[in-house]
Each structure stands twice: as C-alpha cells, then as structure tokens.
Design a protein around this nucleic acid. Structure first.
Lengths: 181, 181
DNA sequence: CAACCGGTGTCCGGAATTGAACACTAAGCC
DNA sequence: GGCTTAGTGTTCAATTCCGGACACCGGTTG
C-alpha cells in the first residue's frame, strides 16, 4: 500500500476538510485543500498529485452532483492518468453508477469510515502510479498484450489472430517467438 | 442505438423474467433466460450474446450480492468482450461501486424503468460490439494511440516520448510520419 | 564570447523484417 | 480412396527498418 501519496481535496465544507486531513494525515506525503474547483489547472501543475478527492456538491443546496461530474471531466481532460475519487453525502445508486461510468476511480459516501477512506485513496494512488509508469506505453509490452489477447480471442487460431492484429501469418510467428509465446 | 442485440438474462424470479422479456422484446433480436448460472459456458458458446443481464441474488434470502460478483468474474473469464449489466433489488451504493469496479458495464435497480433498461442494454451491447471489432487489436492502431498518448504525456518532447515507448528517436520520427503525426 | 547542454531533424550501411510460396497434416465430403 | 478445404510451420530474396553519427539551434553558464 502506498504511504506517500499526494492528495488534492476539493471540498467546500470546512469540517469535512478537517476530517479528511486528519484521516489521511498518517498515510499521505502531501495533502492540499481547495474550497472550490477554480484554478484547478495551476494547482495540478504545481504539485503532481496522485489522487483528487472531489466533493460532488459545492454550491449549497445543489444536490444533483452535476457540478462534480463536470469537474471530473475537466480533471480527466487535464491529466488522464490521475485518479479521481468522488465524495458525496446525498448520493444514490444512480449517481454512483454515473460517476464511475464517467471514469471516476471510486465513490465514497460521507460520513466515511476512516480506514476505508485510507484504503480507497491508497489504491487510487496505486492506480495512478501504475498508469504513469512508462511501461504502460512501452510498445513491446503493448504488442505482447495485444498478441496474447488476439490468440485468446480466436482460440489459438494463428491465422485469424494474425488477421485481427493486422499482421501476416509469418510475422505473427516471428513476434510470438520474440515474446516467448 | 442497437436494435438487434442478443441478451441473456440470468434471473430466478419468474415475474422479473417476464417483465424483462416484455421490456426488451421490441428492441432485441434474441432474449434467452436462465434461472441460475449453472452451465453458463455452454449457453454462451451457443448463441454469441451481446449483453448479459445478471441478477445478483439467486439464492432466496441471500442479499450480499457476492454470488453475482462471482458469476461476473466467471463471465469475464469466459469472454472478456462481453458486457455484463447487474441487477438487484437490495443494492446500496457500496455494492454498485464494487460491481462496477469489478468490471460490470452498468448496474440497475429493480424495479426498473423500462425505457431506462432499454437504453442501458442498448449501450452495453454497443460497447460489446465495439470491443469485438478487430480494430481494438490492430497493432497499427494500437501503436498510433500509444504514440499520441506518449507525446501528450511528455508535452511534445520527442526524446522523452521515444524513451517511454521503448524506441530510438529516429524510429519514433519514422513511425510518426507513417501515422501522420 | 566561448563552451556546454538538451533538444531537433536527417543520413546511410548493415541488420532485421517482410510476405509469397512451399511442403505438410487433419478433417470433411463425395 | 481421391478431392477439397483450412489450417500449420518454414524458406529466402527483396524490402524495410534500425540506430549511431552528424549538423544544427536556442538557452544558460562561466
């Protein structure tokens, strides 16, 4: 479990801010708090966060969660490798499902259990780190995975797998042996 | 929107089965029903479904949803391109989040709104179809995407991007021009 | 200024890759 | 059996790709 995550908390309620700070203090390297999502871009560039903990309801009385989903989309546009965990007090199943389908890493209800929150933030940070390691982009690794999937999907039929990959059959043979398959 | 999806419904309650059949009848090419998840493998091989609508609670009285998550995992092992939509009457936010994190495509509560269910099944089917087109595996397309992401992630710095991709710099130049970047 | 650094874009001889073609096997069919 | 079809695994000349090397460009530093 990661114990040096950098977390950005976007949350307007001062009490919740404090509670989150306390909960995460022991397991995070850096905790920064913003009361609203203005100027997110600069904040992100300044610190290289692993996770954003995002409240879904900034405006008082606003409960639809639409604001949170908007900011989620902005965050993803700014840095697609960053994990975003959404928080809400009013959420129903529909909102949670919507949030995850929009690409949120996790979804927690307020009030939370501290150790659950710690675990959630930890694994979200792990996901970010994994996405950011160079290996995700390495073409060799990508090719290896694609070949394995192609073979699996076509039940080991090499001709079909080669066609799906856009390779000639001899080319697939060569690449398979290169990758040890 | 897809109007010729093949749907497999795994659900023990006869009333719910009937309701689902009626709701989906107009928009689906094939609707098959199983009362329990036994013999799933054969069923899947027989018909090439686009979506599985999976009840989370087969055994009477069982409400944890663990059974549904198990079957979800089995389905994914059998066919990773198949979309699975989970259904439950008892679900809370925690269960929904868990299900989506396990790879479910969507999560609906019983009783459902018919048009919402139709839309859900339709977009799940679309997702399956997309995953099944060969293009997902095509190495050229994969490489194109990886190169774009690498350049983006390194702010256009070609040397760094090449390193991340596991290429020499001249190789990246060649491939960029091949892909029109 | 001169030296250095980190980056870009291009060249070219040697090495790796390509795919048509081949020989073969297993299964289905008349 | 004889014919066809759909696969596998391999060969080899032609082609493509590789990456070290080079020239160049701004910014920074002594």
């Amino acid at each position: 479990m990661i114990d040096d995550a950098a977390v950005l908390i976007v949350e307007d309620d001062a009490d919740v801010q404090r509670a989150a700070r306390i909960a995460l203090a022991a397991t995070c390297r850096l905790i920064e708090v913003r009361a609203n999502p203005a100027g997110l871009e600069g904040t992100l560039e300044a610190a290289n966060f692993d996770v954003v903990l995002l409240d879904m309801n900034f405006m008082a009385g606003e409960r639809s969660g639409a604001a949170g989903l908007d900011v989620l989309a902005q965050l993803q546009a700014l840095d697609s490798t960053l994990s975003v965990v959404l928080m809400t007090a009013y959420g129903g199943v529909a909102l949670a499902v919507e949030a995850l389908k929009c690409g949120a890493t996790d979804f927690v209800l307020k009030p939370w259990h501290n150790d659950k929150l710690i675990a959630t933030v930890g694994s979200a940070a792990t996901a970010t780190r994994r996405r950011r390691t160079a290996e995700t982009l390495n073409l060799d690794r990508l090719e290896h995975g694609a070949i394995e999937r192609a073979l699996l999907q076509h039940g080991g039929n090499i001709s079909l797998a080669a066609a799906a990959l856009g390779l000639s059959r001899p080319a697939l043979y060569r690449r398979m042996s290169k990758h040890g398959l």
